[in-house]
Design a protein around this nucleic acid. Structure first.
Length: 881
DNA sequence: TGGCCTACG
DNA sequence: CGTA
DNA sequence: GCCA
């Protein structure tokens, strides 16, 4: 792949280029004259002209290259670049404010500053020069952030290495042809196109309009369409695109595996004809009013019907959903006037309590008296109760129950953020409101959206609902918030009250760990060493590497010298400060505390080696060894852990196939392992979860749920689907019954194909004899198919599905536990243990008395962490492993 | 020199 | 010991 | 392997 970057903002360009080089190993190619070459001495290749650069990359097309030099190329060279089949043109942009600031900072270095007018001139000229090129970009990335880490996470989720962009798959190919056909439409109402295929060959195409020989609809040929009113369907003279494609093909040319591609969902009339002509599959990419009826008809007639436009729609709708500097509507909505004195009194005690953040966690190491006593918990509880329903300060509009009774949906977007929200929302027929209780969609500044389903008629929860509503022009109330990230609308607590993360803590649960570290290669090397230690059965050695790895991962900047990592960065809450540290940390800084979990001997030496030579010799050696790769392929099989994988690979087993041949495992096991190794797109995770919740809703009145695991940590691809379900007010017996029924229901449709574990809700507790632990998990394998958006093609894919049914009081704790990552969870428990509490996925105990703490008044994960005196780290910053 | 997360099957 |  |  050969990526060319174009854009005006040098910082965004630089971050993108660095990301490709450092995270994905792209080689930098540049065009420049000889005099400029000296300045860098790394792997960069220089060329005298764009043409020679393109030739160079063409000869080495299997490698990955990136160049920022294309926006100064001639149009001939530019076209040459685009003509190659392995090239991708990526345009990156940022906000005007960012751009100005970045220019100012350069200006300052050179001793002059810009006026607004000078900036405008600069922008106009540079943008004008690039405009034509930008318009041809395959991907436009908009960077709203001032912070490199956030931008890198965004880049990561765009998945620039996706081969699909270089060469469309069949669906995309035919769909684009259908779109092209729609351009020939002559109907006043809507441009629709269709392509009929058989065995990947086009049989016919069609677009909508009046029949041959009649005046075109666009010339007034159809009175109904020209009337402007959505009525008189029966008087319409226009043929639909689908009809035209069918008529053009004729009954005899339609085989028994024909696929019809339509750029709009077929209407009921067309659907009838589609069924009658024997078409087996319909693929469409724009929702239409009659989707439900059409879907029903197709289902009855066993015609498969797929909606493919998920990502495109999200990409178009996304700009209006995110990242505005909108203030949280505290003033008019959240802050109700104190209605009575008791409320005010309560608030004052409350806030003084909650402002009381704990000391630096490391200082507490010396202070064994510091515990989270149960009396504190009870105190918390009492206050909540006394202030019930009308606390002021923060979060009183959304009290327990209002949203809790409905489906909670967590969607993490990290795509192109917005330029203008309100205007675009209006264009799509969406209403922007500040009334939470009447809204269906809550938008957070940090690119996260939640559907609360307060008024959606069929009570289904999925992103398609937003997009379909937009396409059907129905009104969709939106509520805007400026919170940081949260999955839970209940969590409208004041972020200012949160305990702040501390990047110097030895506990992973106190630090932030982005999806992709600026030091990803070092992290990877440490991962290899960790895996090697596990394989060698050196458990504690492996743990040390895991800890060191997460420490490096939480390090906010690119490590360039040993001073960077061996002297910790002074903790700073100030974003600006943290960002500017990136440029200043080269200079000697005041030594603060040494970085934890990186000892004086071994791991420090590895890191220094990496700094000096750009690699860790031992890691390279392990990576290159046969044992290593064989071990990994064996390890990937269910039931084969580190021990067995090590033993087998040592006893001379070379591959998984060999195990099958020896009869040690069945072919089915091997296939399953292969399937489970494939990662799952966010789209598919959501569709599967939505399907499961469809079943859940037929068994429970108002289930609440959250998708956790890697998905919640904003990973672009997941390994499995983790769904936590509860129902407000449900008894343990009801929930127990529910899980059994849900399992049956999923099995009866053939979706759930294998059950690996089902735990009853009432497990005899080993801590208290006569009472029970309340938790229930169903671990299984489901068969995902194209309708769920599998990316592996036509064949069904097995996916791991974990359904966890939580008792309402443990809901947030279960979510916290099932979100991970492993290191985060480990240190979470480690930390509370040191404070005389014991924590598992469903409950918190007093470690000495074994008494369970009552969490029934905990309103959110955020709240829970505050109760535990821990900082709330946004899920996308919990990627510690 | 002892501890390193916790639970289930 | 394997898995979440 | 690292920490207390």
């Amino acid at each position: 792949m050969f990526i060319a970057l174009i854009g005006v903002d040098h910082k965004t360009l630089e971050w993108t280029q660095k990301y490709l080089q450092e995270v994905h190993g792209f080689i930098l190619l540049q065009v420049c004259c000889d005099s400029q070459k000296e300045k860098t001495a790394n792997d960069t290749k220089y060329f005298n002209s764009t043409a020679t650069m393109i030739d160079y990359a063409t000869e080495r097309w299997q490698n990955n290259f990136v160049t920022p030099s294309l926006d100064s190329s001639s149009s001939v060279d530019f076209d040459l670049f685009l003509r190659r089949p392995f090239t991708l043109l990526v345009a990156v942009e940022t906000t005007l404010a960012n751009m100005m600031q970045n220019m100012q900072s350069i200006g300052h270095k050179n001793g002059h500053s810009f006026t607004i007018n000078q900036f405008a001139d600069f922008y106009d000229t540079t943008y004008k020069a690039r405009r034509d090129k930008i318009s041809q970009a395959h991907i436009n990335i908009f960077n709203p952030y001032t912070n490199e880490q956030d931008y890198i996470s965004l880049l990561h989720s765009v998945n620039l290495l996706d081969e699909q962009r270089l060469r469309p798959n069949w669906d995309t190919y035919f769909m684009e042809l259908a779109d092209l056909a729609s351009q020939r439409s002559n109907c006043m109402k809507r441009r629709v196109g269709a392509v009929l295929t058989q065995d990947k060959r086009i049989v016919s195409t069609g677009y909508n309009g009046t029949p041959k020989g009649l005046t075109n609809c666009t010339q007034g040929g159809c009175p109904r369409c020209n009337n402007g009113v959505e009525q008189g369907f029966a008087e319409c003279l226009c043929l639909h695109a689908e009809e035209n494609a069918l008529l053009e093909a004729g009954r005899t040319r339609i085989g028994d595996s024909a696929v019809l591609y339509c750029n709009t969902c077929p209407c009921l009339g067309c659907a009838i004809k589609i069924v009658q002509t024997g078409i087996k599959e319909v693929v469409y990419n724009q929702a239409y009013r009659v989707d439900d009826k059409t879907a029903q008809l197709f289902e009855n007639a066993t015609v498969s019907c797929f909606f493919t436009n998920f990502f495109t729609l999200i990409f178009t709708i996304y700009p209006l959903l995110t990242h505005l500097n909108l203030k949280r509507p505290t003033n008019n909505l959240m802050k109700q006037p104190p209605s009575d004195k008791s409320t005010t009194d309560d608030d004052s005690t409350q806030s003084s309590d909650e402002h009381d953040n704990p000391d630096d966690p490391d200082n507490k190491d010396d202070d064994s008296e510091a515990t989270l006593s149960e009396s504190e918990m009870v105190g918390e509880k009492r206050k909540r109760r006394s202030g019930s329903g009308s606390r002021s300060g923060s979060g009183r509009i959304v009290e327990e129950g209002i949203i809790y009774n409905h489906d909670i949906r967590f969607i993490s977007f990290s795509f192109n953020p917005s330029i203008e929200l309100v205007g675009a929302a209006t264009k799509l027929g969406l209403t922007v409101t500040s009334d939470l209780t009447s809204s269906d969609l809550i938008i957070y500044e940090s690119c996260q959206v939640e559907l609360t389903q307060l008024s959606h008629p069929d009570n289904s929860v999925c992103q398609h609902w937003i997009t379909d509503s937009a396409a059907a022009n129905t009104t969709l109330p939106i509520c805007l918030y400026n919170l940081n990230t949260s999955y839970d609308p209940n969590a409208f607590e004041d972020p200012a009250l949160d305990i702040q993360p501390d990047s110097t803590s030895k506990y992973a649960c106190w630090r932030t760990h982005p999806l992709v570290s600026p030091n990803e290669e070092l992290v990877d090397a440490l991962r290899v060493l960790k895996q090697d230690r596990i394989a060698r059965d050196e458990k504690w050695n492996a743990l040390a590497y895991t800890r060191a790895l997460s420490m490096v991962k939480s390090f906010p900047h690119r490590i360039r010298s040993k001073d960077d990592i061996l002297l910790s960065v002074p903790a700073s809450d100030d974003e600006e400060d943290a960002a500017s540290a990136a440029s200043t940390y080269k200079h000697p800084r005041t030594p603060t505390k040494p970085v934890k979990n990186i000892g004086d001997k071994k791991i420090k030496a590895k890191i220094e080696e990496w700094l000096n030579y750009g690699r860790v010799y031992e890691a390279e050696k392990i990576r290159g060894s046969d044992m290593h790769s064989i071990y990994h392929s064996l390890y990937s099989i269910q039931g084969i852990g580190p021990k067995k994988a090590f033993e087998l690979s040592r006893s001379g087993v070379r591959s998984v196939d060999e195990l099958v041949d020896n009869g040690k495992i069945t072919q089915d096991d091997a296939t399953l392992a292969q399937h489970l190794n494939n990662s799952i797109s966010r789209d598919e995770v959501e569709r599967i979860a939505n399907y499961v919740m469809g079943h859940a809703r037929s068994l429970l009145a108002h289930p609440s749920y959250a998708i956790c695991g890697g998905f919640r940590r904003a990973k672009p691809m997941s390994n499995d689907i983790d769904i936590i379900i509860t129902q407000h007010g449900a008894s343990v017996a009801q929930l127990n019954h529910f899980l059994v029924a849900l399992t049956d229901s999923l099995q009866s449709t053939g979706f759930l194909t294998k059950l690996m574990r089902q735990v009853s809700l009432c497990v005899a507790s080993n801590r208290r004899k006569e009472d029970h632990d309340y938790q229930s998990t169903m671990l299984g394998v489901v068969e995902s198919s194209r309708k769920f958006g599998t990316s592996e093609g036509e064949h069904p894919q097995y996916r791991r599905l974990d359904v966890i049914v939580a008792k309402p009081a443990s809901f947030h704790l279960e979510i916290l536990s099932w979100t991970g990552s492993v290191m985060y969870e480990r240190d979470l428990r480690s930390y509370v243990r040191r404070h005389k509490l014991k924590l598992n996925a469903s409950s918190v105990y007093n470690d000495t008395t074994d008494e369970e703490l009552d969490l029934s008044l905990v309103r959110s994960e955020r709240h829970l962490l505050r109760v535990l005196r821990l900082p709330w780290i946004a899920p996308q910053y919990r990627n510690c492993d």
